[in-house]
């Protein structure tokens, strides 16, 4: 059963086709990899899916609760509310805010109390704030960040910043999670830990995950299916073993890497 259908998605900047005619499908509960050489347009696809860029043409359809919704042309915050959350390639945490606030901000979209309660701190304010705090602490405990809740995000070690960013995305209560190079800059031990964690959150949060990653060992190990992007186009799609033996992929991407090595 598909949860997200991407149909002929295209984005051009001026004359440059950053993404052209990309069609993809994510099935519910799947963990799909999106790989390709540098500049292939992977992050642009993420930016299109999350509304940061508007597609030149093509559609993105979310199938949720037996409904179909068109996501192209919507604002990022609306898409987030529909259930797509993401992390960023170059970590975009709220650096000068605490770990706790980073997570709490991601829960803002569920807040029901209005401006009156905000200004006068009424009962509904304190009830909801308390509930939110509890939820945040639960989330923070999962990644063992609870004892660091009052630390500023920028003071966390690099690996924990990556974790916090994933946690912040989870706090928006998504059904689809887009991870943009979560293992970038990590050592093998950290990558192994991250691999395990991604699998764990998928099970426990009932998520569908789309993952951009350069670390092939990670991608091959955890992804059920892989899309390969080159020059903004999908050049291959299949299981890890299929991708490994796909000639075009080897030419475009793996070959280049092997050649360099």
């Amino acid at each position: 059963m598909p949860i997200l259908t991407v149909n002929k998605l295209t984005k051009s900047f001026g004359g440059l086709m950053a993404v052209s005619n990309v069609s993809m499908e994510l099935k519910k509960g799947e963990l799909v990899g999106l790989i390709g050489p540098n500049g292939a347009g992977k992050t642009t696809v993420f930016n299109l899916l999350t509304g940061i860029y508007q597609p030149t043409s093509g559609t993105v359809t979310l199938h949720r609760d037996k409904k179909e919704e068109q996501l192209q042309g919507l604002k990022p915050y609306t898409i987030c509310k529909k259930g797509i959350a993401r992390t960023f390639q170059n970590i975009r945490l709220f650096k000068d805010l605490t770990v706790l606030d980073n997570v709490r901000i991601a829960m803002n979209k569920n807040v029901k109390y209005g401006l009156f309660s905000t200004f006068f701190h009424t009962r509904s304010y304190s009830d909801e704030e308390k509930e939110m705090l509890d939820k945040c602490m639960q989330l923070l405990k999962i990644l063992k960040l609870d004892h660091k809740k009052d630390e500023l995000a920028k003071n966390l070690p690099y690996g924990e910043q990556r974790h916090l960013e994933i946690l912040r995305a989870l706090a928006t209560n998504p059904c689809i999670l887009l991870l943009d190079e979560p293992a970038a800059g990590m050592n093998p031990a950290e990558t192994a830990q991250l691999t395990e964690m991604i699998g764990w959150i998928r099970e426990n949060f009932d998520l569908t995950i789309l993952l951009i990653e350069h670390d092939m060992s990670l991608v091959m190990k955890i992804c059920e299916r892989i899309y390969v992007l080159d020059y903004g186009m999908v050049i291959a799609e299949g299981t890890p073993s299929e991708i490994k033996s796909n000639k075009r992929v080897i030419e475009a991407y793996l070959g280049e890497e092997m050649g360099n090595a």
Binding site: K75, Y77, F94, R104, I105, N108, Y113, A169
Partner: peptide
């Protein structure tokens, strides 16, 4: 009081990183 509320935090997140805050569901 406004600042110490979820709405206030949403405002602060815009100062910190508007793109990230929109991606986290904040209507900037």
């Amino acid at each position: 009081n406004f600042i110490n509320s979820s709405h206030g935090r949403a405002c602060i997140s815009i100062r910190e990183d508007e793109i990230a805050s929109e991606a986290m569901g904040v209507n900037s």
